[in-house]
Simulated scan of single mutants.
Amino acid sequence: MRRIDTTPRADWQARVEALGLVWHTADGKPYWDESACYIFTPAQIATIEAASADLYEMFIAAGQHVLDRELLGDFGIPAFCHDAIHDSWNAEPPALNFGRFDLGYDGTNPPKLFEFNCDTPTSLVEAAVIQWDWKEAVFPNADQYNSLHDTLVAKWRDIAPPPGSSALYLAHVADAAGEDSVTTAYLADTARAAGIETRLIEMPDLGWDSAGRRFVDLDNMPIDAIFHLYPWEWLVNEPFGKNLVESLGTTLWIEPIWKMLWSNKAILAVLWELFPDHPNLLEARRTPLTGDHVRKPLLAREGANVTLVRGGATLAETAGDYGAEGFVYQALYDLPGSGTQRPVIGAWMVDGAPAGMGIREDGPITGNTARFVPHIIEA
């Protein structure tokens, strides 16, 4: 695993915009950063794949453990959601079942899990499409760990709504940076490539038909299936949250409500309880650790409200609006690199199988301004 300098393409901005990445620059600096790339050996990629597959199996075991022991309340999940989570876990409704393991990896020692972004994962367009286009242009003879696009299309084809259903709606909130908008539009593209009729809708435009007990669009047309790039913990706390849970039999939500189990960082402590000292896990508990550690809110996004503690002193911390829901404490992992060039591996899963990766660089805490740096596999 080596980081090398590369020369950005002269027309890189236009190239990535044409592929849908309109938020390629932040504060005048590239977010999509092709001035460098990471080179991996085939053996290192095999290590990341194997770790991802093992972690997925452990998440299944941890989810079953939580449900068998009725621990959803410990996760801060509202009581009115508990039965629905049990039901969806057991019924396995149609889902992409995709997500991104964030891993620490130095190319030598086993990858270590930081968390699993499996409810509303982003950095998808750049991982699936942009870095592949870059590789084809700059390193055409190299390989890349990347089957994301084809795997997503295949999974959409597998879960396509039956004939007679409404179009597949894809919902999100129009964020200022455009990241959620672009991610949702890309997923709509993959669904259309699978032969599915799609419609984009913003979350405020969802309507509730109280008579029919179902969700409708702005034209009062029923919504039979909807993908949401909007976290479940936000969905269930909306004014329509209880209606949503009660109407899961008439509206298919992708991803399913059981994802509340895995997207909550309380699952990290359960994993450590079930698999202590596993080579791909960092010690994690709901109570403070005595050694060097990271304190993370259970539901934060984009590295918000994270505190790094070394030698009893705060090494780094970020601000944000999270924390009231509680924290998890995880052993500190020293990322390789230095300064703002510390890579975090985003190992993607689709339908429970490894499907590729992306790399983001930042300082000790990976936040929403972290750069995306492409990779190749050496021959």
Rank of each mutant, 00 (worst) to 15 (best):
E115S: 02
E115C: 02
F116R: 06
F116P: 03
N117V: 08
C118L: 05
D119N: 13
D119W: 05
T120H: 08
P121D: 02
P121L: 03
T122I: 02
T122W: 00
L124T: 11
V125S: 00
V125A: 01
E126N: 05
E126Y: 09
A127H: 12
A127I: 12
A128L: 13
A128G: 11
V129E: 09
I130C: 08
I130M: 09
Q131R: 10
Q131N: 10
W132Q: 13
D133E: 12
D133F: 10
D133S: 13
D133K: 09
W134E: 01
K135L: 13
K135R: 15
E136K: 14
V138T: 13
V138M: 04
V138G: 05
P140V: 07
N141P: 00
N141C: 06
D143E: 12
Q144V: 09
Q144T: 09
N146C: 07
N146T: 05
N146P: 08
N146I: 01
S147T: 15
S147K: 12
L148S: 04
L148I: 15
L148M: 15
H149L: 05
H149E: 06
D150H: 06
T151G: 01
V153M: 07
A154C: 00
A154Q: 10
A154R: 10
K155L: 07
W156G: 05
W156D: 06
R157D: 13
R157E: 13
I159R: 09
A160Y: 02
P161S: 09
P161L: 04
P161E: 06
P161H: 06
P162N: 04
G164F: 07
G164I: 08
S165F: 04
S166W: 01
A167L: 13
A167N: 12
A167M: 12
L168P: 02
L168V: 02
Y169H: 13
L170E: 00
A171Q: 11
A171I: 04
A171D: 10
A171N: 09
A171K: 08
H172W: 14
V173W: 03
A174F: 01
D175A: 03
D175H: 04
D175V: 04
A176K: 10
A176Q: 11
A177F: 01
A177N: 11
G178S: 03
G178D: 05
G178V: 01
E179Y: 01
E179V: 08
V182H: 03
V182Q: 15
V182F: 01
V182I: 13
T183C: 11
T183D: 05
T184F: 02
T184C: 12
A188R: 12
A188W: 01
A188C: 14
T190G: 08
T190R: 06
A191N: 14
A191V: 10
R192C: 09
R192D: 08
R192T: 13
A194T: 08
G195S: 10
I196V: 15
E197K: 14
T198M: 08
I201F: 03
E202W: 05
M203W: 01
P204V: 05
P204M: 07
L206V: 07
G207H: 06
G207R: 14
G207D: 12
W208A: 04
W208C: 03
D209N: 15
D209Y: 12
S210Y: 15
S210G: 06
A211S: 14
R213K: 15
R213V: 00
D217S: 11
D217M: 09
L218P: 00
D219Q: 13
N220P: 00
P222R: 14
P222Y: 07
I223V: 14
